[in-house]
């Protein structure tokens, strides 16, 4: 995270303060598109959950895949992550790494250990 030259950063500030209207009109169209995509994604998740793929794991995979797509849309466009500063990406990459570490290392405590020992006595 070295300091950039003033010329480079100065233009970014100017850009932010004099955002021109036509550009924002385009943004609005993009937001509406994302909105429709999210509604469609919701219906698709519900629909896919009723399809008998034969294996419940596939249902879980499909539902989570759609959820990840929807989540990415929200994060990228509504939260403007698609055009965010490097610093924010850095923070979020660390967070994502530790998030995955928490998820998978916790589960992998059962790698060579029977899973039903999590709740030893059954139901």
């Amino acid at each position: 995270m070295e300091i950039k030259s003033p010329a480079q950063t100065g233009s970014a500030v100017a850009e932010a303060s004099h955002e021109d209207f036509t550009e924002f009109k385009q943004h609005v169209h993009r937001y509406l598109f994302v909105f429709y995509a999210l509604l469609f994604g919701t219906l698709a998740t519900v629909g896919a959950s009723y399809i008998p793929w034969g294996n419940h794991e596939i249902n879980i995979g499909v539902a989570l895949f759609i959820a990840v797509c929807k989540g990415s849309l929200v994060a990228c466009y509504f939260m403007h992550l698609i055009s965010e500063r490097r610093l924010i990406y850095g923070i979020l990459m660390f967070t994502a790494f530790f998030f995955l570490g928490l998820m998978f290392l916790t589960l992998s405590a059962y790698l060579n250990f029977p899973l039903d020992t999590v709740t030893p006595y059954g139901h």
Binding site: L105, S108, A109, Y110, L111, N112, F113, T117
Partner: peptide, 13 residues
């Protein structure tokens, strides 16, 4: 998890 060697955690991890 080096605080948890005695908890019955798997040996691989």
């Amino acid at each position: 998890a080096h605080h948890m060697y005695l908890t019955g955690m798997g040996t691989k991890i």
